[in-house]
Amino acid sequence: MRLREVMQVTRARPILAGLDLDVEVQACFAADLMSDALRYDLEHALLISGLVNPQVMRTAEMADVAAVLMARGKVPTPESVQLAEELGIPLLGTDITMYETCGRLYAAGLPSCAPHSSQE
């Protein structure tokens, strides 16, 4: 699913200007605790979170996440936005709750991330 469609489905807006809306997300994971997310294979995934500090972007960086979506109207700190810009990771925001955001995306066909498989 392209970022453009993610934004339509979740009524999201870009928090960082100059987004490439054709970025492809292949799966999705939602968490407020970052180590819960890092248990899963997040490559090319959309990470939904309510965590506003820069660690959400650090997590995205380490795991090669394709884009980050802030749910329930959470506003990322300026440090987070700056880090997103430095890392070139698209950062979106929606006012919808995390539960509903996930539900909409799942219904639209975006699958859940799988746990890390045994290493290739």
Binding site: L33, M34, S35, L38, R39, L51, N53, Q55, H116
Partner: peptide, 20 residues
């Protein structure tokens, strides 16, 4: 710490899963 996004109790498990 959980408000900062950590303390899921998965850190060491994640390290173990990633390394040889």
């Amino acid at each position: 710490i959980r408000e900062m996004g950590f303390g899921a109790g998965m850190g060491l498990c994640n390290i173990k899963a990633c390394v040889d």
